[in-house]
């Protein structure tokens, strides 16, 4: 609708319609105020901390592991569609044959106008941002953070370097590296479901928490450890934590949740950095060779 068409009576009608929608939405939302039944949530809250102290991590990656795996596919579809839409030279669609394929004009930011301080402090900032992303990733199971956050912080560091330095980006990620890291992350995430499937029959069953070290959860009788003792003595409990609470000390193990977090972070890094690379430089093999 043209915005000029909204002057006069039609504009008043539009405003009234929006107000009616606002009243409807807000009344339906306000009915939820304080009326939501806690339901099964306390049960989850009781069990989840013994898996990973961060409740959100154990919910997203353990209880919802398979759903989250499929949802990350959406990010990949986004990256794929962006590549196809911008670098249309690759795939020729029949209906648009008459058009010249979109020539990806590479966008070079003007570096010379940048402040000198900004230009020389860019590298430390980028290094510290990458280190912060890795901190968030490794602290995922125990404090706030996770794979999604790590990927987002890393790709923001990449965008920052792109804006500061243009083509001389200190964080030089080539197309091959991005595709490779995305594929590696996807396969880490998917293949971590395999051990659980082979032992228990459920895809992405958290092997490390239950079968690798059984009986660590106090009060819950663990089943006998399936993994032979030799393996456990060789590798130990890589993700075993000691929770010091006011009412005693508990041991918990996050199992494969930290590993899934790493796969997820690689996934997000690959997809979102690929989107930025394509947006700024286009998708041209000649440019890649000349770099």
């Amino acid at each position: 609708m043209d915005s000029k068409g909204l002057k006069g009576s039609r504009g008043i009608i539009a405003v009234i319609a929006l107000m009616i929608i606002f009243v409807g939405v807000s009344t339906s939302l306000l009915q939820l105020n304080g009326n939501v039944a806690r339901g099964i949530s306390p049960e989850y809250n009781e069990l989840a901390p013994y898996e990973a102290p961060n409740n959100l991590a154990s919910w997203v990656y353990d209880y919802r592991g398979f759903d989250t795996l499929i949802e990350t596919g959406v990010i990949y579809v986004g990256a794929l569609v962006s590549v196809l839409a911008i670098g249309r030279g690759i795939v020729r669609v029949k209906g648009v044959e008459g058009d010249a394929p979109v020539a990806p004009s590479s966008m070079e930011f003007n570096v010379s106008t940048l402040n000198v301080i900004l230009k020389y402090f860019g590298v430390p900032v980028i290094i510290l941002l990458v280190a912060y992303a890795l901190l968030v990733l490794t602290g995922a199971a125990t404090s706030g953070g996770g794979g999604f956050q790590c990927g987002v912080i890393f790709s923001s560091a990449y965008l920052l370097g792109m804006i500061f330095y243009g083509r001389k980006n200190p964080l030089n990620l080539s197309k091959k590296f991005l595709i490779a890291i995305g594929g590696v992350g996807w396969s880490i995430y998917a293949l971590l479901g395999l051990p659980g499937y082979l032992t228990t029959g459920y895809w992405q069953y958290n092997v490390g928490a239950d079968l690798w070290t059984s009986g660590v959860i106090p009060g819950v009788d663990g089943m006998a450890a399936v993994v032979p003792d030799i393996l456990r003595q060789l590798f130990g409990d890589p993700f075993r934590l000691l929770l010091v609470m006011s009412d005693g000390t508990y041991a918990s193990t996050a199992g494969i949740v930290p590993l899934i977090n790493i796969g997820e972070a690689f996934n997000v890094i690959g997809a979102i950095c690929l989107i930025f690379l394509v947006f700024v430089y286009g998708w041209n093999d000649e440019e890649e060779k000349s770099r």
């Binding site: 961060n54 959100l56 968030v136 706030g144 953070g145 996770g146 999604f148 956050q149 987002v152 912080i153 790709s155 923001s156 965008l159 920052l160 804006i163 979102i272 989107i275 930025f276 947006f279």
Partner: peptide
């Protein structure tokens, strides 16, 4: 929900306006 606050702050300041 501090996890969400972290994510939303970074997405909102850098990624969304960047795109």
């Amino acid at each position: 929900a501090p996890d969400l606050g972290l994510t939303q702050a970074i997405v909102a300041t850098v990624l969304m306006p960047g795109i």
